[in-house]
Write a protein that binds this DNA or RNA. Structure first.
Lengths: 255, 255
DNA sequence: TCAAAAGTGTTATGTGTACACCCATGG
DNA sequence: CCATGGGTGTACACATAACACTTTTGA
């Protein structure tokens, strides 16, 4: 790489920020880390960090995700099947308002990651504390009687980024098989339905849902096994099929 | 803004690139400019330029669009009605592979702009030559017997960016009122149908299309006038309604 | 008068929704 | 035995696709 000539163009810092979502206890949760330094010291923020000088944007996002969660992400460009127990990872959007970081001009390339219900988050290499928080609480929708933490707004413009990420997830599970990224490698139709219900915040008819997802070609493939981990009659186990785009799409009920 | 400390983070150049699309002669066209300097000297590229040090990303994209076309863009964040004779402008994605520009590390925030059929493109302030080119030709699909210019691949990763932009436009006119951004402020149902046909590369039934778009609430509002500029029986004139999301969506015929 | 494009009516077919009903397990 | 969730069948409402047909202009 030729030497950097500061007179030729304005210098920017480039970071990646992560919206990491999971479904737990019939709700949507996001991963947040506590800031140890100013600005916004002590406040919660999305995980993220600087892009290294010879690193691609998607690689940087995958590295941060691995550092925070231990997940091995399936990076995708446009559409790809979320496979195995890796998380889905895609670019969300870029946030570069001049004053979004008071210290310097920072452009952040936000990424969206979807993960199955995980054990506790790993503390980052720099020993920041990390936790899962209900999205409704972070977005101040008072969805939960708050837990141990008061709900202060996220640092920087991270509330906005989180909001955009949640909206992306909400709309994308309509027409893609992305909802399976919230499930373990083998799951039942009922578990998949609870993902849709949590992400959309609705209640779906179990019978029609079953017919729809099992009838959509390539969405689910039966593994042969069954489970009774949800109680009741044993349910067939499925894994995510090869299809990425659902046709016909899942329909989100009217509000 | 505090002074820049190069030791704290790797310095990046940040640019905006524009995918500007229009519909003309029953096909999709993109705006390209000829590069006057190495690398890729003499090759066609997407219009774009450096983000200024105190400029928001969307502002930079709007400025470049104005410099290239004279269009006054409606910048949007997520969804917004394309109004007046301004173009629709939205962020498309960010491209930051380490070697995408051989000179230095450049992260480009690509934007997608949709415009009605325009007069000739304005030469930029720096006198670069600009032209409209059929997208099929730029993407090497040989959709046209080529015109005066040989079809060399675009500079940098611009073919990929263009491809992503076209794909975004194709899918977004399905569920949003974005197709009206390709039309002048007043247009007929037939003209709107020709937009869909050009962007999707299909032929639609004029009768069913008419019923569908006029029956979708908020999509079109009649202006009262009529026109015969397409020949045949006079057609009602419409302008874009307030709706941004179409419910039910327009259905793209199977391939 | 004819061609061309705009619009309306009608019908077959498919898809979503609501809900009655049965199945297989654990307690 | 019953509660719990899994899964099937069926009837109705509604949307789409195909196409016959009428309307209104310019040439």
């Amino acid at each position: 790489m030729p030497p950097y000539d500061p007179s030729a163009f304005p210098p920017f810092a480039v970071t990646v920020d992560l919206v990491v979502l999971t479904v737990r206890r019939h709700a949507l949760w996001a991963l947040v880390v506590r800031r140890g330094e100013p600005p916004f010291q002590g406040r919660w923020a999305l995980p993220g960090g600087f892009v290294r000088v010879d690193e691609d944007l998607a690689d940087a996002a995958g590295r941060e995700l691995r550092e925070e969660t231990g997940l091995c992400a399936q990076e995708v460009d446009a559409e790809a099947p979320p496979a195995g127990n890796g998380a889905h990872l895609e670019q969300l959007g870029t946030y570069g308002a001049p004053e979004r970081d008071p210290r310097m001009r920072v452009v952040s390339v936000a990424h969206l990651a979807l993960a199955p219900d995980l054990p506790a988050p790993r503390a980052g290499g720099d020993a920041r504390s990390a936790r899962w928080a209900p999205v409704d609480e972070l977005l101040d929708r008072r969805g939960y009687g708050r837990e141990d933490e008061p709900a202060a707004p996220l640092a920087f413009d991270h509330t906005r980024i989180l909001c955009d990420g949640v909206e992306r997830a909400r709309s994308k599970i309509e027409y893609s098989s992305l909802a399976t990224a919230f499930c373990p490698s083998e799951f039942t139709v009922g578990e998949l339905r609870r993902v849709y219900e949590a992400v959309w915040g609705v209640v779906l008819d179990p019978r029609n849902f079953h017919r729809k997802v099992t009838g959509t070609p390539g969405f689910l493939v039966p593994t042969g096994g069954t489970t009774t981990r949800q109680g009741g009659r044993p349910a067939q186990l499925f894994s995510a099929g090869g299809a990425t785009l659902l046709n016909p799409p899942m329909l989100r009920p009217e509000v």
